[in-house]
Design a protein around this nucleic acid. Structure first.
Lengths: 92, 92
DNA sequence: ATACTTTGGTTTATATTTTAAACTTATTTA
DNA sequence: TAAATAAGTTTAAAATATAAACCAAAGTAT
């Protein structure tokens, strides 16, 4: 009847992040914070979770002298996102 | 960019309940528990929340001598469900 | 009759999650 | 050189979800 909704994606902020990364293919911390309207702290925690799940890759480097965290979706993340959309359909 | 997802509906169990009520227009506790696969305790709590939000009506009566809790969607609940679907679209 | 089980729930407690506040380190700017 | 800003991280508090324990009434077996 109702399919399970991947709890990692069933979160407004994490879903927004993955949604951005699906089309952008690369986005940095500041961009994600602005587009999602989240606080840095919350974003930091949620990015970690997506990373731990293997849904995104995180690259910590520098832009000039300032730190720059860049995120990309992984194949696993892309797949999870598609499954999530499919599962959602069972509710509508 | 991303629309807010009504936290009351952004919950697997509550979404399933509302989803059922949208089409069934009436469903009792046992039916909801079976269809959603939830435990009675969890369902009881989540039904209360939907009721408190004015998304569903709850009628406590009897079927013969056994208690029978019947739920129905309200106009407010139906509206919230439609808004939720609309909001979700901003993530896809 | 009386013990045990089942039904239909509710309440309470625990675990998980989310979120924001506080902190860190480095960099500009006044 | 002091104060502000940037880019995060860590921590701690608040909110949520979930299950376990409980309750009352009815049915069943002894």
């Amino acid at each position: 009847m109702f399919k399970e909704l991947d709890p990692l994606l069933h979160s407004q902020l994490r879903l927004a992040v993955v949604s951005i990364l699906i089309t952008a293919e690369e986005a940095d911390f500041v961009y994600l914070r602005e587009k999602t309207g989240s606080t840095a702290g919350n974003l930091s925690v949620q990015l970690d979770k997506l990373y731990e799940a293997g849904y995104i890759d995180i690259e910590k480097g520098y832009s000039g002298k300032r730190p720059k965290t860049t995120c990309r979706i992984t194949a696993k993340g892309r797949n999870a996102f598609e499954n999530y959309i499919e599962a959602l359909k069972s509710y509508f």
